[in-house]
C-alpha cells in the first residue's frame, strides 16, 4: 500500500506487484492512452517508423533475455529473425495456414533452432560463445540463400497478405495494433519471467555460474532454455516483419542486423525489459532523425546530405561508444535516475 509517507506492504502479493504507487499507475495509463491516440495523429511515414520500433522492440527483448539477463552473448540474432520470417511466410504462402497460426509456428520453430545453436553455450563462454553463435548467423543465411526450392534462394519471397475470417489484414494502421499488441504481450511476458524462479535462475547463471550450479540450477538445461525462449521472441519479431512487409529477403537478416540489435540492448540497458524498448526506439529513430537533419540543413551543408549514409553509420558508432563510456547501463538507467531526481525534488536527498 502506498501512502504519503512511503510504500508499505502487508502481504507478499502486494510486494510482488509490478506497480505500487499511484504515480506508477498513472504513468502506465498515460503511456497506454498515448499509444492509442498515436496512430490517429501520426503521418504515414512516422507510422511505419513506429511499427518498425514495435517489431524491433520484440526482437530486442528476446535478445536481452539471452544477453542481458542470462549473460550468453549471441551474434546470431539476424539468423534467428530470418528463421522466424521465412517459417511464418512459408507456412502462409505454401501451406495456406492463417497467419496467426503461422506466427505461432514461427515462434516454436525459431525456439527450436535457437536451442540447437545454443548448444555450444554448454561448453563456451564470452567471446568464444559469441564466435560460435556467429556460426548460426552464417549457417542460417547460407541455408536461406541456397535452399532455393523452399526459400526462393536469393530472390525475394513474396508473402500473401494475412487473411482472417475473410478479412484481409494489411496497411500500416491495422498492423500498428497487431504489432503494438504483440510488443505489449512480449514485454509483459518477459517481465513476468524475471519475477519467477525460472528467470532468477537465468540471472544466477549470468552473475555466478558455479554458485548457480551449486544451489541446484542445472546450467545445461537453463542455458539451452534461455536460447530457446530468447529465440522464440526473436522468431515472433521475424514473423511480424514477414507479414507486415509482405516480402522477405535474406538481405534484411545479415550480420549487421545482429549488431544493430546488440546496439539496441546496450544503448537501452542490458538486463532491462523497458530498456530493450527504449533502445529499439532509439536505434530506429536515430537514422530517421539524421535523415531529417540532412534534409533540413542540406541546403547549407550539401556535403552532409550527400554523405548521409556515411554520417548515419558514424553516428551509430559514436552513440554506442558514448553509451559504453558514460552510461553502460543505458537509457533505462538514465530514466531511472531522472525518476529518482524528480521524486526527491527540490530536496537533495
Amino acid at each position: 500500500m502506498a501512502t504519503a509517507t512511503g510504500v508499505y506492504h502487508s502481504t507478499y502479493t502486494a510486494d510482488l506487484a509490478l506497480r505500487h504507487t499511484r504515480s506508477e499507475h498513472a504513468r502506465l495509463a498515460i503511456v497506454a492512452i498515448a499509444l492509442v491516440i498515436l496512430p490517429f495523429l501520426a503521418t504515414p511515414y512516422w507510422l511505419t517508423v513506429v511499427n518498425q520500433i514495435g517489431i524491433a522492440a520484440i526482437g530486442a527483448i528476446g535478445l536481452n533475455i539471452l544477453v542481458g539477463y542470462t549473460g550468453q552473448i549471441s551474434l546470431g540474432q539476424g539468423g534467428f529473425l530470418a528463421v522466424g520470417a521465412y517459417t511464418s511466410g512459408l507456412l502462409v504462402g505454401d501451406l495456406g495456414l492463417p497467419f496467426p497460426l503461422a506466427m505461432v509456428g514461427a515462434v516454436l520453430m525459431t525456439a527450436l533452432v535457437g536451442a540447437f545453436f545454443g548448444l555450444p553455450a554448454l561448453r563456451l563462454k564470452g567471446l568464444y560463445l559469441a564466435i560460435a553463435t556467429l556460426a548460426a548467423q552464417f549457417v542460417i543465411i547460407w541455408v536461406v540463400r541456397n535452399w532455393d526450392v523452399v526459400t526462393g534462394g536469393t530472390a525475394a519471397l513474396a508473402v500473401p497478405a494475412g487473411e482472417l475470417f475473410g478479412w484481409t489484414v494489411r496497411g500500416d494502421f491495422t498492423w500498428y495494433w497487431i504489432i503494438t499488441g504483440c510488443a505489449a504481450v512480449a514485454a509483459l511476458a518477459a517481465t513476468n519471467l524475471f519475477r519467477t524462479g525460472l528467470g532468477r535462475a537465468f540471472v544466477a547463471i549470468r552473475d555466478q555460474d558455479i554458485a548457480a550450479e551449486v544451489i541446484g540450477v542445472d546450467p545445461l538445461r537453463h542455458k539451452v532454455l534461455a536460447f530457446a525462449i530468447s529465440s522464440g521472441f526473436v522468431g515472433l519479431a521475424g514473423a511480424l516483419t514477414a507479414h507486415y512487409r509482405l516480402i522477405v529477403t535474406w538481405e534484411r537478416f545479415t550480420l549487421e542486423v545482429s549488431i544493430l540489435y546488440l546496439a539496441m540492448i546496450i544503448v537501452g540497458g542490458l538486463g532491462s525489459v523497458a530498456g530493450s524498448i527504449y533502445g529499439a526506439a532509439f536505434m530506429i529513430l536515430l537514422p530517421a532523425w539524421i535523415q531529417q537533419l540532412g534534409q533540413s540543413v542540406g541546403g547549407t551543408f550539401p556535403a552532409l546530405s550527400r554523405n548521409l549514409p556515411a554520417v548515419q553509420q558514424a553516428a551509430f558508432g559514436l552513440v554506442i561508444i558514448l553509451f559504453l563510456v558514460f552510461e553502460p547501463r543505458g537509457l533505462a538507467r538514465i530514466w531511472q535516475r531522472m525518476k529518482d531526481y524528480i521524486r526527491l525534488w527540490p530536496f537533495r536527498y
Binding site: 524462479g197 535462475a201 540471472v203 549470468r206 555466478q208 554458485a211 538486463g271
Partner: peptide, 17 residues
C-alpha cells in the same frame, strides 16, 4: 559467490530453486 546484481531477497529465493 553471491549473485551480485540481485537483491538479498532474490539471492535467498534462489536458494529455494
Amino acid at each position: 559467490e553471491l549473485f551480485r546484481h540481485m537483491t538479498v531477497l532474490e539471492n535467498l529465493l534462489l536458494g529455494r530453486h
